[in-house]
């Protein structure tokens, strides 16, 4: 649906602008997994306030916007095993790879980083294969 594509482009521009501000002003990479992970495992103790502030904004702004719009939906599966397994995989995987969709994808590809491009190829490939297997073959999701 073209409306979705335009909203995607507009939302993407907001995400890219956020990443650009973080880089140009704070001199930091806007990678969600790195910012969250550094707070959780203590490796980002020295700049915890900056990390916590970003996560607060990331949580509060969409909460208020969703409220103003009369609610939003994630349409997440209600299969608890899938939710827990997926959460563990995303947590372990992004920390092993040192980045996720925002760090490797947005920030990495835009500077033509080989690591970012390879990481993105692997997580999209693995994601596509997983959807094929678990949706079309096994019918779990």
């Amino acid at each position: 649906m073209p409306t979705d594509w335009i909203m995607g482009l507009a939302g993407g521009a907001l995400i890219g602008t956020a990443a650009a501000i973080f880089l140009l002003i704070n001199g930091r990479i806007m990678g969600a997994s790195g910012i969250i992970g550094g707070l959780i495992d203590g490796s980002g103790r020295h700049d915890w306030m900056e990390r916590a502030a970003l996560i607060a904004g990331l949580l509060i702004a969409p909460a208020l916007a969703a409220l103003a719009m009369g609610g939003a939906q994630t349409q997440l599966t209600d299969n608890w095993i899938v939710i827990i397994a997926a959460g563990l995989l995303v947590g372990v995987g992004t920390r092993l790879a040192n980045g996720c969709t925002s760090g490797h994808g947005v920030c990495g590809i835009s500077r033509l980083s080989l690591r970012g491009i390879v990481a993105t190829a692997f997580y999209i490939g693995a994601g596509g294969l997983t959807v094929v297997v678990f949706k079309h073959v096994l019918g779990v999701i």
């Binding site: 969600a32 997994s33 969250i36 996560i55 990331l58 949580l59 969409p62 994630t74 349409q75 997440l76 599966t77 899938v82 939710i83 397994a85 997926a86 959460g87 563990l88 995989l89 995303v90 947590g91 372990v92 995987g93 992004t94 920390r95 092993l96 790879a97 040192n98 996720c100 969709t101 925002s102 490797h104 690591r115 390879v118 990481a119 993105t120 692997f122 997580y123 999209i124 490939g125 693995a126 994601g127 596509g128 294969l129 997983t130 959807v131 678990f134 999701i141």
Partner: peptide, 25 residues
């Protein structure tokens, strides 16, 4: 680590449709 990590992440991403940023948002 980059290849294995990204593969594991992609599997979790495909299963749930969530990655770290949107999960918090």
């Amino acid at each position: 680590n980059l290849v294995l990590g990204s593969t594991l992440f992609g599997m979790g991403w495909g299963l749930s449709g969530l990655c770290p940023g949107p999960a918090v948002a």
